[in-house]
C-alpha cells in the first residue's frame, strides 16, 4: 500500500472539485473493495476523498412519479432490508442479499457496489500481465485459468466479468443513475453505465474523472409479483457468481406482457438481450419458451478452456429462474 493523504468532502460539489484538484485521488465509501485493492498495490491513489460525510445522498425515498430513489451512500444491507425496497422491489433485495457476507453488506455502499472491480485472479496478482490493470501488458486469463471468466461480450484484450449481484437486479429493473460532476449533474441509463472491455479493458464504466454517483432511480415499474434472483456459485454463501440470473416478469391472462432477464457472472457488465425479452412477450411463461429465450441469449456465447460449462449452466439457470419467477408471488 502506497502512503496517501486523507480528505473529507462535505458536499457533492466539494467532492468533485477535490477530485479534480487531486488527479491521483479516489473516493472512498465503505472501503470494502478499495482498501483491498490498495493493499494489493493494484490501486495506488495518493489521496483518499472520504464521501461518507456528504449529506443527502444516503437516504431512500419515493419520488412523486412513483419511482424510488436510492442514495449512493446507503449501505447494501440497509437497502435490501428497507421496507419499501423489500416490498416493492423484492428482486433488488434478493440480489443484494445473495452477495458477499452480512459483514460486508453492512459496510458496502450502493455507489461502491456499482464500481467494484473484477475478481479475475490475474487482475489481483500484480506479478502477472493484465490489460485491465496494466494496459498493453496482455491478458493472462485468455490462455490461463479462466473458470470464472466471461462467455459473452468479451474481447481478446480482456475476458473478465463484473462481479456484482446488486447490479444484475438494477439492470433487470432498468434503473438509472444520478451523477454529479464538476460540470453539473447528469443522468445515465443503467445499461449505459458499465462498458464492454473492447480495446479499453482498463475502463469498467463510463463515469468521468471527478464524477460522483449520488443516487440510483428505480422506475415505477417494479415487478413485485413475478421475480426471482438465482445465483450459482462454488459454495452456498460468500462466493461470487459463476452465473446469476435476475428475472422479472409481468404476466397477464397467462401471457408474458413484459420480460426482463439479466445475467451476472458472464460478462464485463450485467447482460440483457432485447431479442430474447421480445420473444417472450405475449408468449406463455413455460419452460419451453424460457429455453428458447435462453438459446437466444447464449447464441453468441463463447467459452474458454475452463469455463465452457457456464454456457449450459446459464441456459439451465434462465429456465429454472423463469419458472421460479412465475411461481413466486408476494401477493
Amino acid at each position: 500500500m502506497v502512503p496517501f493523504n486523507y480528505l473529507v468532502a462535505k458536499g457533492t460539489a466539494e467532492a468533485s472539485s477535490l477530485s479534480q484538484s487531486h488527479i491521483l485521488s479516489k473516493f472512498i465509501a465503505g472501503g470494502t473493495n478499495l482498501i483491498d485493492l490498495m493493499k494489493e498495490n493494484i490501486s495506488r491513489p495518493d489521496t483518499l476523498i472520504d464521501v461518507n460525510k456528504i449529506q443527502g445522498i444516503g437516504q431512500i425515498e419515493e419520488l412523486r412519479d412513483g419511482s424510488l430513489r436510492i442514495g449512493a451512500l446507503a449501505k447494501n444491507a440497509d437497502t435490501a432490508y428497507h421496507a419499501i425496497v423489500a416490498k416493492k422491489y423484492p428482486l433488488l433485495s434478493q440480489a443484494i442479499l445473495a452477495g458477499a457476507s452480512p459483514q460486508l453488506r453492512n459496510m458496502a455502499s450502493n455507489g461502491g457496489n456499482l464500481l467494484q472491480r473484477t475478481r479475475c485472479y490475474y487482475f489481483y496478482d500484480v506479478a502477472t500481465p493484465c490489460n485491465k490493470r496494466d494496459p498493453g501488458s496482455g491478458c493472462s486469463a485468455l490462455g490461463g485459468y479462466n473458470r470464472i471468466h466471461a462467455i459473452l461480450g468479451a474481447s481478446d484484450n480482456c475476458i473478465a466479468v463484473f462481479p456484482s449481484d446488486m447490479c444484475v437486479a438494477l439492470a433487470a429493473l432498468s434503473a438509472s443513475l444520478n451523477i454529479s460532476g464538476i460540470n453539473g449533474d447528469r443522468t445515465l441509463d443503467f445499461a449505459d453505465f458499465h462498458r464492454l472491455p473492447g480495446d479499453t479493458p482498463e475502463l469498467d464504466n463510463n463515469l468521468q474523472p471527478g464524477e460522483l454517483i449520488t443516487s440510483i432511480d428505480l422506475p415505477p415499474e417494479r415487478f413485485d409479483s413475478h421475480y426471482s434472483y438465482l445465483k450459482l456459485r462454488d459454495r452456498t454463501s460468500y462466493a461470487f457468481a459463476l452465473v446469476s440470473v435476475a428475472t422479472a416478469l409481468k404476466i397477464e391472462n397467462g401471457l408474458i406482457k413484459d420480460a426482463r432477464i439479466a445475467l451476472g457472472g458472464v460478462a464485463h457488465k450485467p447482460w440483457r438481450n432485447s431479442e430474447a425479452e421480445g420473444y417472450l412477450k405475449d408468449n406463455q411463461p413455460n419452460a419451453q419458451n424460457f429455453a428458447i429465450a435462453a438459446d437466444i441469449i447464449l447464441k453468441e456465447a463463447k467459452g474458454y478452456e475452463h469455463n465452457t460449462f457456464k454456457i449450459e449452466l446459464a441456459k439451465r439457470a434462465i429456465v429454472r429462474n423463469g419458472l421460479k419467477a412465475v411461481n413466486q408471488s408476494q401477493v
Binding site: 485472479y121 489481483y124 502477472t128 493472462s140
Partner: peptide
C-alpha cells in the same frame, strides 16, 4: 497457473472452504 508456477487463488475469498 503452471505457465507462471504461481498460485492464483491465494486468498480466503477465492480459496473456498465451507461457510
Amino acid at each position: 497457473d503452471h505457465r507462471f508456477g504461481r498460485i492464483m487463488n491465494s486468498s480466503l475469498a477465492e480459496y473456498h472452504i465451507p461457510v
